[in-house]
């Protein structure tokens, strides 16, 4: 007599495992689909003018987004200059001084929540504390908003990689008579350099693709601007304005900008994961 129960269990097993295989395929398929469209539409929209010229007046074809490329670089560099050192120092406190302390676990808890907090709210916050008091949208406001988004990301990764440095290494350096801060800077940081670099790269990738916090801070600009107290154009805000606009040429420009920003973000992410830090290796 065939064992019906056993057959049923086997069928359920294969059905469930098949469904799990399909889920993975679903995720990968959407990744490929989106990347393919961004690549095909975006690469078609790129031209030398895209990288060198300013935007054309609305409705006219031609022009480029050179100022938006510059603006995105400018904001990302300033945000990194603010966010990374402060994030690493805060992470140092958590890993070197505050292990097990109540303050450290509060900082960890808040940082974890801020990592996933809505970035548009950060935009409103910076609008209220910088844009309105200073009388207008400005590049520095955008950079501060990005730095605030970056801060918790850097703190958490910095803490994690600093903790991976074995305590024996710290003790060895301390036993030689080095002061704690020298041990941290010259021994612990050096031991964790790889991990810190990975974390910083991922944080840079994350903020360079942000749009929502820039809408009310760095705003937009049709011209070149390197002054920190004036609005500046960025690729992501340009995508938002152009994609919502009525002209086909604008849509093409938006695809071009989308291609650039996606390529940059994915390149940095993949390099960070594969070359610098091997998360799946260990």
């Amino acid at each position: 007599m065939p064992n019906f129960l056993y057959t049923r269990r086997k069928i359920t097993n294969y059905a469930a495992l098949g469904a799990s295989l399909l889920s993975a395929a679903f995720g990968v398929a959407f990744l490929v689909w989106i990347l393919k469209d961004v690549l095909v539409m975006g690469a078609g929209a790129l031209s030398p003018a895209f990288f060198t010229e300013l935007p054309a007046p609305p409705g006219e074809a031609g022009g480029g987004l050179a100022n938006a490329i510059g603006g995105t670089l400018l904001l990302t560099v300033i945000a990194t200059a603010i966010g990374v050192p402060s994030g690493i120092l805060a992470g140092t406190y958590l890993s070197e001084y505050g292990r097990g302390s109540r303050l450290a676990s509060a900082v960890r808890f808040i940082a974890d929540i801020l990592v996933s907090a809505p970035s548009i709210v950060i935009g409103i916050f910076v609008y209220a504390i910088i844009v309105r008091p200073s009388g207008g949208f400005s590049a520095i406001a955008g950079a501060v908003a990005l730095a605030i988004i970056m801060l918790p990301v850097v703190i958490r990764t910095a803490e994690e990689v600093l903790k991976l440095v074995p305590d024996a290494t710290r003790e060895a350096a301390l036993a030689l008579g080095a002061p704690h801060w020298k041990v941290t800077v010259f021994v612990v940081y050096r031991g964790a350099a790889r991990g810190i670099t990975t974390g910083v790269m991922l944080a840079v990738a994350r903020v360079s693709g942000e749009t929502a916090p820039l809408l009310f801070t760095s705003f937009n600009n049709s011209f070149w601007n390197w002054k920190l107290n004036e609005p500046v154009s960025t690729l992501t805000v340009a995508i938002f304005n152009y994609a919502m606009g009525p002209y086909d040429d604008w849509h093409a420009k938006a695809w071009g900008a989308a291609f650039l920003i996606t390529a940059a973000v994915l390149f940095v992410t993949v390099t960070a994961r594969l070359v610098v830090g091997r998360r799946h290796g260990g």
């Binding site: 990744l31 539409m41 990738a205 693709g209 749009t211 849509h251 695809w255 989308a258």
Partner: peptide, 23 residues
């Protein structure tokens, strides 16, 4: 496969929006 899923998280939100609207 894990990397591919992580890349889905790395794609900026505005790209999802734009792709969603146009495609």
């Amino acid at each position: 496969a894990g990397m591919a899923i992580e890349l889905l998280a790395a794609i900026p939100s505005i790209i999802y929006g734009m792709w969603g609207l146009f495609v």
